[in-house]
């Protein structure tokens, strides 16, 4: 899962990013609308958190321009809580609206729900054969037994499970699960996948040689 946070207040931006990273979500940040739009256009984000009041390009403008080429879920993050503002945001194409100040728990839940909806998953629990993934509690049971996973391992598993049946290339996985802070030239991904196989048996995550990984 990779999320873009566009927020002009540096401290808040940093704090939101840290909160989401704690949840195992890869986070990129942008400190103004122009930068946010440029990053958003790359199309590698599962969700975009967008502040409204920004110098230069404001959140509405960013959203409008972004919607011309991308359908990534967008959550407006703003101090403006008047109903007309919310309506405007949702009409322009925002998927959700969260007013400051917010609770971290709510922020995370909304981001998870946003991503879930965008891949067509309606429930927070994903069940594939013996694998049960509770995206809300971030717990994994395999064959009836609870499996201890690190945040990164969990996010890889979750991403594969959400896109079950699809072969996910290493590049795509890197794009979607690792953010600007990670070194994308390492073999981190392979390390994590092999750890996952060790914990849950080799048959769950399959390798398509030359293509990538998948859960069937």
């Amino acid at each position: 899962m990779r999320v873009l946070v566009v927020e002009d207040d540096w401290a808040l931006c940093r704090s939101v990013a840290a909160t989401l990273r704690d949840e195992g979500i890869a986070v990129d940040t942008a400190n103004d609308g122009v930068e946010g739009l440029a990053l958003g256009r790359e199309g590698i984000y599962d969700a975009i958190l967008l502040d409204v009041m920004m110098p230069g390009l404001d959140g509405w403008e960013v959203l409008e321009k972004l919607r011309m080429e991308s359908s990534a879920p967008v959550m407006m993050l703003t101090a403006r809580d008047a109903v007309p503002d919310r309506v405007k945001g949702l009409d322009i194409g925002a998927d959700d609206y969260l007013t400051k100040p917010f609770d971290n728990a709510e922020l995370c839940a909304r981001v998870r729900a946003l991503i879930r909806r965008s891949v067509g998953q309606t429930q927070s629990a994903i069940t594939i054969d013996k694998l049960v993934l509770d995206t809300a509690g971030r717990t994994v049971t395999y064959d009836g037994k609870e499996v201890e996973l690190t945040a990164r391992e969990y996010s890889i598993l979750e991403y594969l499970a959400l896109n079950r049946g699809k072969v996910l290339t290493r590049t795509r996985l890197y794009e979607r699960l690792f953010d600007e802070r990670d070194d994308s030239y390492s073999n981190l991904l392979d390390v994590h996948v092999s750890k996952l196989r060790k914990k849950m048996g080799p048959e769950l995550i399959k390798t398509r040689r030359g293509h990538g990984y998948l859960i069937e």
Partner: peptide
């Protein structure tokens, strides 16, 4: 104007 610093305080402390 107070919402942003309050958000920071809340977010940081909760985190």
């Amino acid at each position: 104007e107070l919402r942003t610093p309050v958000s920071i305080l809340l977010s940081e402390t909760q985190r």
